[in-house]
Computed example of a mutant assay.
Amino acid sequence: MSHAERIAILGGTFTPIHNGHRALLHKAFQTASHDGPGDGHVIVGLTSTELAAKTRSAAHAERLGDYEDRRAALAAELDDTAEPYTATCEIVQLSDTEGPAATRADVDALVVSPEAKAQHRAHELNAHRREADLSPLEIHTPPFVVAEDGNRISSTRIRNGEIDVHGRLLD
């Protein structure tokens, strides 16, 4: 990658991959694919099994599935998502809550969910970057994607059998 390339970063467990995740991925590719020199690059941090066990309830972490299976599903999704954009992409394993977004000087933007918790973490991450004499990241947030019932699509709702990955209500 050349220094002129714009780098957008995002992270999560991405399981099951749903339309809300797709909105985040598209926002990352839109942010990285820009006019000017370089084609851009997207870094997708995928939460390791160990980190998930530390940051989520045991029952939730157990339901996420194997890291390699999640990585394969995410890679397939990225192949489809990246097609219309100029940016390249890579998947990195997240072993801590801030990942490479906290330490890489070449990253330009962070893509996060509109959830209050995610927004708070993004601003905390920028505070840590400032303390480390790194430039703060632009924070890009797509709107929530809602299901047929008007409530947001979430992995929890999908795992609970309320909706499918496209937000359609299940009986």
Rank of each mutant, 00 (worst) to 15 (best):
Q30V: 12
A28D: 06
R6P: 00
I43H: 04
A23S: 15
S48V: 03
G40E: 11
G12P: 11
A32Q: 02
T47G: 11
L24Y: 06
G40T: 12
E5K: 00
F29S: 02
I17C: 06
T15A: 14
H18C: 11
L46M: 10
S33E: 09
S48N: 11
H41N: 01
F14C: 12
Q30Y: 04
I9R: 00
I17P: 07
G45K: 02
T47S: 14
L10H: 04
S48M: 05
H41G: 00
A32N: 02
H21L: 03
R6W: 10
E5W: 01
N19I: 00
G12C: 10
L46W: 10
A32K: 03
G38L: 06
A8P: 06
R22G: 12
H41Y: 14
L25E: 09
N19Q: 15
V42N: 11
D39G: 14
L46A: 09
N19C: 13
I7H: 02
R6Y: 13
K27D: 04
L25A: 12
G45S: 05
I17E: 08
P16N: 04
I7S: 01
P37F: 10
K27F: 01
H41S: 02
G36V: 04
G11C: 04
E50Y: 00
V44N: 07
A23G: 10
G38F: 07
G20F: 07
T13G: 11
E50V: 09
G45Q: 05
I43K: 02
G38Q: 04
E5A: 13
G12H: 11
T15Q: 15
F29C: 05
L51R: 08
H41Q: 10
T31H: 06
I7V: 15
I9Q: 03
H21T: 07
A28G: 06
A23C: 10
F14A: 12
H26F: 05
G36K: 04
I9A: 13
K27H: 06
G45N: 09
L24M: 14
G38R: 02
T47E: 13
A28I: 01
N19L: 15
I7K: 03
L51V: 07
K27E: 15
L25Y: 08
H21M: 03
L10V: 05
N19M: 14
